[in-house]
């Protein structure tokens, strides 16, 4: 009975569709085409022009760049400008790139290990203690760090302005986010796997390192990509907790160049462009991962 109704309905739908399609197809095509071209145009103006503006001005000489126009440069100074940026202040930019990369790398390794371990137990044990710990984790998603007390803590344990200090701090500040993603993914790994491992005489450490951690690979890669962009782009925490000329990081260098280069917009834009290359590369290769991480929880709420 119900199958008949279903078939009838599909048939009706199909004929209905066909009818509409044939009668309005031409009109619709034209309308669609104009909407499409209009949207491309708007996107080009809003998002294309700023990029073109930065690129073209980083190729000009100082006086021409000072006009801040979209005009084509009368002469190109590409190598000259970029060389000047890279060698400014004894290669500050290169040092900043090295430092930022190192901080990002070490923070992510720490985070992946520590957060996945915590999420493993937090997701598997659903007791009263676990509930309290979960709410502590949530706090980290909402509240910004307490600046001066954090500096005081770092100073007291001798880690202020040091590489281990900023690495541990970045790991702590990204803990909540990584932990939530790991927990959500862990929920999709059946408990039967754990039990089977236990029956076979697996210790909990072996279970975690040999079975659970490899299974978490998809969400691990999402966390790696998203956190590396966040830590690389971090300005505020580097400003507070990792200051000093020796400790140059990319965002802080750009901010300082704003004052140092003054009106040399060509050099400033060249630096902007150099800094934007790593996120661009990640975006090209891991677009889907990034979107997946950012929309996690949006569907379930």
């Amino acid at each position: 009975m119900s199958i008949e109704i279903k078939q009838e309905r599909t048939a009706m739908l199909q004929s209905y569709d066909r009818e509409i399609q044939s009668s309005v197809k031409k009109k619709k095509d034209l309308k669609l085409l104009s909407i499409e071209s209009f949207s491309i145009l708007v996107a080009l103006v809003l998002f294309g022009i700023p990029f073109y503006f930065v690129i073209i001005n980083s190729f000009k000489d100082v006086t021409e760049a000072a006009n801040m126009s979209l005009a084509w440069p009368s002469s190109f100074h590409i190598l000259e400008n970029y060389k000047q940026v890279v060698t400014a202040n004894n290669g500050m930019v290169l040092r900043a790139f090295f430092n930022s990369t190192l901080i990002t790398l070490l923070s992510i390794i720490t985070m992946i290990l520590v957060c996945s371990m915590a999420a493993f137990v937090l997701q598997r044990r659903q007791g009263r203690g676990s509930k309290f710990l979960n709410s502590m984790v949530l706090v980290g998603l909402m509240i910004p760090p307490a600046i001066v007390p954090t500096i005081w803590v770092l100073q007291s344990i001798g880690l202020f302005k040091t590489l281990p200090g900023i690495v541990l701090l970045e790991s702590a500040l990204h803990f909540s986010f990584a932990c939530m993603l790991y927990k959500a993914f862990m929920a999709t790994i059946p408990r039967e796997i754990d039990e089977a491992a236990l029956m076979d005489g697996c210790s909990s450490f072996k279970l975690y390192f040999k079975i659970i951690l490899p299974l978490l690979k998809p969400v691990t890669s999402t966390i790696i990509v998203l956190s590396s962009i966040n830590i690389y782009n971090d300005f505020e925490n580097m400003l507070y907790f990792f200051p000093g000329a020796e400790n140059a990081t990319v965002q802080l260098t750009l901010y300082n160049f704003k004052g140092m280069f003054g009106t040399s917009w060509n050099l400033l834009f060249a630096d902007v462009l150099l800094i934007s290359i790593p996120p661009l590369i990640l975006f090209i290769f891991f677009n889907k991962k990034i979107v997946a991480g950012m929309t996690a929880g949006a569907v379930k709420g």
């Binding site: 502590m136 706090v139 980290g140 509240i143 760090p145 307490a146 007390p149 954090t150 005081w152 803590v153 770092l154 344990i157 541990l168 701090l169 790991s171 702590a172 500040l173 803990f175």
Partner: peptide, 8 residues
């Protein structure tokens, strides 16, 4: 705790 909760 050391780097986030305690300072808070």
């Amino acid at each position: 705790t050391v780097f986030f909760l305690a300072p808070t």
